[in-house]
Write a protein that binds this DNA or RNA. Structure first.
Lengths: 144, 144
DNA sequence: ACAAGACTGTTGGTATACAAACAAATGTTG
DNA sequence: CAACATTTGTTTGTATACCAACAGTCTTGT
């Protein structure tokens, strides 16, 4: 161990909320991937919203899943390729592309929900139930 | 408003910790970008670690900033292009590439630290000081 | 009705993020 | 010392994530 020790009196990156927020998210994504084998968190989010709301325009789906139009486009593209959703033009408004779950998509989201809950449980395992409540309440305030 | 309302009795994506964790991180990155104009959060993290520890091998820098070897490579590449760090082979261990702050890099991180603190403040503005403490303590437990 | 403005989706560019496969260099162990 | 294992860094491929610019389409104000 000839490594130089950090100057503990100074600014510490490890204490920065942003850094730990990023790491917490990384950890959750990794746990999620182990539990939900065939869907990324964002793909899961898109399917979950379509399950909640029914058919949605691509941009509205993006807003409901916190993705901008460029990002949701790629996500929908890959879900179409997996045959989990369909994408068609809207008859009334030529600007819109309507995205909807396929039967395979409905089956996939039903299965994935339980796996996502298991992922959530593992992610939150290091903290107490009280802390889970606090954490969820604070996160809700931070994202509006 | 002819939108179908979601089925509120069922699984709600908005309640999922993972989803809000991702959104909180997105929000922080956006705030950070407004305060720290010339550095991304990951570039800032790399510079901050080099400032704390001095010269580091590329992989060790990656571990200290929570980036895998493929990711840190690109980050270092862009920092070299901006002339904020140098990258050279280690004399003793031919496998290592030693990354070190340039004078411009030292100036940049000194300036960016204050801006990063301002970003942190804005990110945490929606919650009380007590909640900030709770939040930081819980995040620390979640990232080990 | 029609010009101005707003909205939707696409494209191109940049920047994480991680898995898998790989070569080169170094360490370890019998 | 020689076989094996580990570590480091690179490359390729896939998947977010967001900005800026753009063309169509729809809505609004007058």
């Amino acid at each position: 161990m000839t490594q130089k020790a950090p100057d503990t009196s100074a600014y510490q990156l490890s204490d920065q909320v942003g850094f730990n927020l990023r790491r917490a998210n990384q950890r959750h994504v990794a746990i999620f991937a182990r539990h939900v084998l065939d869907l990324t968190p964002t793909q899961f989010a898109a399917l979950a919203r379509l399950d909640e709301y029914g058919a949605l325009s691509q941009n509205r789906l993006g807003r409901l899943t916190a993705m901008d139009s460029a990002t949701i486009k790629g996500v929908v593209e890959r879900l179409v390729a997996k045959d989990l959703v369909t994408s068609r033009a809207d008859a009334n408004d030529q600007r819109l592309r309507i995205v909807e779950l396929t039967p395979a998509g409905q089956a996939a989201i039903a299965r994935a929900k339980e796996q996502a809950i298991a992922a959530r449980t593992e992610t939150l395992a290091p903290i107490s139930p009280e802390e889970v409540e606090q954490f969820e309440a604070i996160l809700a305030k931070l994202v509006d």
